[in-house]
Computed example of a mutant assay.
Amino acid sequence: MSELYTLVEGGQYLIENFDEFLTLLREHIILVLVSELAAITVAVPLGVIAVRYNRLKSSILSVGNVAQTIPTLAVIALAFPIFGLGFNSAVIALFVYALLPILTNTIAGLEQVDENTIEAAEGMGMTKWEVLRKIQLPMALPVIFAGIRTSVVITVGTAYLAFFIGGGGLGVWVISGINLFNTPQILAGAIPGALLAITLDSVFAFIEHQIGGEGHHDQSIATG
């Protein structure tokens, strides 16, 4: 009963501060989207390079693994002297953390494309670039998208730490609530973040399923 009452209090806090909530939610979503777009822009080409030049694969994966193992607060601490307080440092930290799932899935997706399909395309006169653009990337897209989906969910949770350098987001309520022992404020910031992660995961899962169906169709045409 006390848990239900606490949840009700959290809902009341959110309603009473709804304008601030919308601002924090918007900041949180922007942090996630910008860092994810940056991670995709970097990780997918790195994955392509790793597959194309096998001797670089271990080095590229090592960079991704190191980025994932460094605590987010440590990345924030390193970014702060260069980019200062605020949005930019938060995005850098989230970007670093978002890289690995996209990178590993890009490599896995490209490597699982059937060699016979690639050889058939090359036999038809396609260049390596054309094979990559028209065959490998479309077939690898469902796996790459699964990595993006995982990365997005991780980033939604990690974005709460943006509070520590003035990056905004729902972490403002959660961490301030922890410091003030204000449970309704904590819940008002934490529950929407969890719902945001679940919603994004469901949306990306649906898109991934759609892409997967198209990818299998394209593969059957290419090998037919």
Rank of each mutant, 00 (worst) to 15 (best):
S220M: 09
Y160R: 02
M126E: 07
G125A: 12
L94H: 00
T199M: 15
S58E: 15
I15Y: 06
F181A: 15
G125C: 15
I178H: 04
A188R: 03
I60M: 10
V63R: 04
A190N: 05
L14D: 03
Q12D: 05
V51Q: 11
E130M: 12
A222H: 12
Q12S: 11
I70M: 06
A205S: 14
T69A: 15
I211G: 02
R149V: 11
N105F: 08
I70P: 04
T106I: 06
S220W: 06
L14M: 13
I211W: 07
T150Q: 10
G189L: 07
V32T: 07
N105S: 10
A79H: 14
L24T: 04
L187F: 15
P71K: 09
I191Y: 07
G167D: 09
T23R: 13
A205Y: 14
V96E: 01
I207P: 00
G177K: 03
I76K: 01
G10V: 14
L161T: 00
M124V: 06
I154E: 01
I118E: 11
A159W: 00
I107A: 12
V174S: 00
V44F: 06
G177Y: 02
A140Y: 08
I175A: 01
A98V: 00
L161D: 00
S151G: 13
G213F: 10
A79W: 05
L25P: 03
N88M: 05
R26N: 11
F95H: 05
L7R: 06
F83Q: 08
G168N: 09
V63W: 05
T127H: 05
F206L: 14
N17D: 13
N182C: 06
Q185I: 03
Y160I: 06
S89Y: 02
L46G: 04
S2T: 13
S202C: 11
P138T: 13
L4A: 15
G177H: 00
G167V: 02
P192N: 04
P138M: 13
Y5K: 10
A43F: 06
F80K: 10
E115T: 10
G177M: 00
G166W: 13
Q219P: 00
F21R: 05
G169M: 07
V51F: 09
I107M: 12
I165R: 00
P45F: 09
E119N: 15
K134Q: 15
A90I: 00
I207S: 01
I191M: 09
G109N: 03
F80Q: 09
G157C: 04
I40M: 05
A188G: 08
Y160F: 14
I178M: 10
A146I: 04
L195T: 05
V42K: 01
L94F: 03
N54H: 14
A121G: 09
E9D: 14
H28D: 01
F83D: 11
R133Y: 11
E3H: 10
E20A: 13
S59G: 11
L195H: 07
